[in-house]
C-alpha cells in the first residue's frame, strides 16, 4: 500500500521555523512507523534525524507525536496508523533537530525523584532483601516504565508550566516509594509534596493514554498523593 508520511522537520542551521515535508512511500500494513522513517533516512534524505536504539519497544528512545498522540514509532503499525501519517517531535521539550529533542530537563526531573534503591542496612541473612509477592505487586505497574517521556510530554500542565516535575518522575518515585525494601520513603514523599510536584496533577489522563507500556500513570500519581496525605507531609 502507498502511504503519505508527513514529517515535521527542523534544521537549526538552515530553518527559522519547523516545516512539514511529505514523503510518498510504499509500505506493508505490518510495517512500523519506524520502518517508514528508516526508508526516508536510508533512501530519500540522509539528513533526517531521530533517536532509536532497540527498535522493539524496550529502550524508549523513539517516542514521538504520531497522528496527534505520543507513541513509540517502533510499536505503531502502518495498518493502525492509516494511509496518512504525521510525525512530529515530542511537545513541550526543545527540538534539537527534526524529531530529536533535548532530554536534559527530563532527566533532571527524573533525578529529582531519587530513582534508585536506598538501603544501607545489612540484610537479615546477610545476602538478600526478601519481599512478599503482595509487596512486589504494589509497584508492579510503575516498574514497567521505560523512560520514553511520552507521558510527561503529553501532559497539558507540563506544556504550559515546564517547572512541573511531570508524570514520568512521579511514576519513578512511586516505584521506590512503594518498595518495601527502600529506606528513603519519607525523603521521596517530601520531595514530591511540592507545588511543582504531585499537587500540580489535574487528572487529565493524557499520560495514561500516551503510555506505550500501559501504565496507569494517573493512578500512580494519586497513590503517591494519598501516601503524602497519610504521612502528613507538606
Amino acid at each position: 500500500m502507498e502511504v503519505q508520511l508527513r514529517i515535521r522537520r527542523y534544521n537549526p542551521e538552515l530553518d527559522d521555523e519547523p516545516h512539514w515535508e511529505v514523503y510518498a512511500l510504499e509500505a506493508e500494513p505490518s510495517d512500523r512507523v519506524l520502518d517508514l522513517l528508516h526508508q526516508v533516512k536510508w533512501y530519500r534524505d540522509g539528513t533526517l534525524t531521530f533517536r532509536r536504539s532497540c527498535a522493539h519497544g524496550v529502550c524508549g528512545s523513539d517516542a514521538m507525536l504520531i497522528n496527534g498522540r505520543n507513541r513509540l514509532a517502533c510499536e505503531y503499525l502502518v495498518k493502525d496508523a492509516g494511509r496518512k501519517i504525521s510525525v512530529e517531535p515530542l511537545r513541550g521539550v526543545p527540538v534539537v533537530k527534526d524529531l530529536l529533542v533535548d532530554m536534559e530537563d527530563f532527566w533532571a526531573k527524573y533525578r529529582a525523584a531519587m530513582p534508585y534503591l536506598v538501603n544501607d542496612e545489612i540484610p537479615e541473612d546477610g545476602k538478600e532483601r526478601r519481599q512478599s509477592p503482595a509487596d512486589r505487586e504494589l509497584y508492579e505497574d510503575t516498574s514497567r516504565c521505560i523512560l520514553c517521556a511520552a507521558c510527561t510530554t503529553a501532559c497539558p500542565v507540563f506544556w504550559t508550566n515546564p517547572d512541573y516535575v511531570g508524570p514520568a518522575a512521579i511514576v519513578n518515585a512511586h516505584r521506590f516509594i512503594f518498595d518495601s525494601r527502600d529506606t528513603a520513603h519519607e525523603e521521596r514523599l517530601e520531595l514530591m509534596a511540592d507545588a511543582d510536584g504531585v499537587w500540580r496533577c489535574r487528572t487529565v489522563f493524557n499520560c495514561v493514554e500516551a503510555c506505550p507500556r500501559g501504565i496507569n500513570v494517573t493512578r500512580a500519581i494519586l497513590e503517591v498523593t494519598q501516601e503524602i496525605k497519610q504521612a502528613g507531609r507538606a
Partner: peptide
C-alpha cells in the same frame, strides 16, 4: 490543513476535554 496543524497539535481525548 496547515491552519489545522497549528491549532490541533495533540489529539483531544474526552478526558482532556473534560478537564
Amino acid at each position: 490543513l496547515s491552519l489545522q496543524d497549528r491549532l490541533v497539535r495533540y489529539r483531544i481525548s474526552w478526558a482532556q476535554l473534560a478537564w
